[in-house]
Computed example of a mutant assay.
Amino acid sequence: MNEPVIEKRKVTLDGFSFVGRAARTTNEAEMTEEGMIPKVNEYFFENQLLEKISHRKNNNIIALYTNYESDEKGSYEYAVGCEVGEDNIFSDEMKRFTIPEQKYIVFTTKKGPLNEVILEAWQFIWNWSKDNKRAFTADFELYDEKSIDPQNGQADIYISVK
């Protein structure tokens, strides 16, 4: 069986501003019909919210996990959107987040159907987290040019660390 993560590297990123559609959830809720992540994603794409965000830094889409109550067992805020400049305009359907400078471990998924390779990578990360110190400040999935084909794509998952 192929490993779910083909690369892992440590980086420090400058802080950035993000705008996206957001909802509060838990990992426990996401394992049920009550999960908010699919609903947030569906609303974001069906209503073409990316096009309603001005001053985008690029065309990358970010799935953000932030404002953690505690750790992977507590609630957190999930949002899908993009990195923006300071003077951007966005609709009431969205929210702005400020992501601080942070150290991350970046996990690059293998290529494949994005919904499958992302889930496999997160399962790998949850196992990795048992022996590593996560910061639980802001984690995110980055969907860039490697992710254009949802049936044979690849993404980077940034996990904040101490």
Rank of each mutant, 00 (worst) to 15 (best):
Glu30Cys: 02
Glu30Pro: 03
Met31Asp: 10
Thr32Met: 06
Thr32Asp: 08
Glu33Met: 09
Glu34Tyr: 07
Met36Glu: 06
Met36Ser: 09
Pro38Thr: 04
Pro38Gln: 05
Lys39Asp: 08
Val40Glu: 05
Val40Pro: 05
Val40Trp: 02
Asn41Lys: 11
Asn41Gly: 14
Asn41Val: 15
Asn41Tyr: 12
Tyr43Glu: 13
Tyr43Pro: 11
Phe44Ile: 09
Phe44Met: 08
Phe45Tyr: 14
Phe45His: 08
Phe45Val: 11
Glu46Asp: 12
Asn47Gln: 15
Leu49Ala: 06
Leu49Glu: 08
Leu49Trp: 05
Leu49Asn: 03
Leu50Val: 12
Glu51Pro: 15
Glu51Ala: 14
Lys52Ser: 08
Lys52Val: 06
Lys52Pro: 04
Lys52Ile: 06
Ile53Val: 04
Ser54Ile: 10
His55Lys: 14
Arg56Gly: 06
Asn58Val: 04
Asn59Arg: 13
Asn60Asp: 15
Ile61Phe: 03
Ile62Arg: 07
Ile62Glu: 08
Ala63His: 04
Ala63Trp: 02
Leu64Asp: 01
Tyr65Lys: 02
Tyr65Gly: 03
Asn67Val: 07
Asn67Ser: 08
Tyr68Gln: 03
Glu69His: 09
Glu69Lys: 06
Ser70Thr: 11
Asp71His: 08
Asp71Gly: 09
Asp71Gln: 09
Glu72His: 14
Glu72Met: 13
Lys73Gln: 14
Ser75Phe: 02
Tyr76Gln: 00
Glu77Leu: 07
Glu77Pro: 07
Tyr78Ile: 02
Tyr78Met: 03
Ala79Gly: 04
Val80Lys: 00
Val80Gly: 02
Gly81Thr: 02
Cys82Ser: 09
Glu83Val: 04
Glu83Ile: 05
Gly85Asn: 12
Gly85Tyr: 11
Glu86Pro: 07
Asn88Thr: 13
Asn88Arg: 12
Asn88Ile: 08
Phe90Tyr: 02
Phe90Met: 03
Ser91Ile: 15
Asp92Tyr: 10
Glu93Ser: 14
Met94Cys: 12
Lys95Ile: 10
Arg96Leu: 10
Arg96Ser: 13
Arg96Lys: 15
Arg96Ile: 13
Phe97Gln: 01
Ile99Val: 08
Pro100Phe: 01
Glu101Ile: 12
Glu101Ala: 11
Glu101Val: 10
Gln102Tyr: 09
Lys103Gln: 15
Tyr104Phe: 01
Ile105Ala: 12
Ile105Thr: 15
Val106Lys: 09
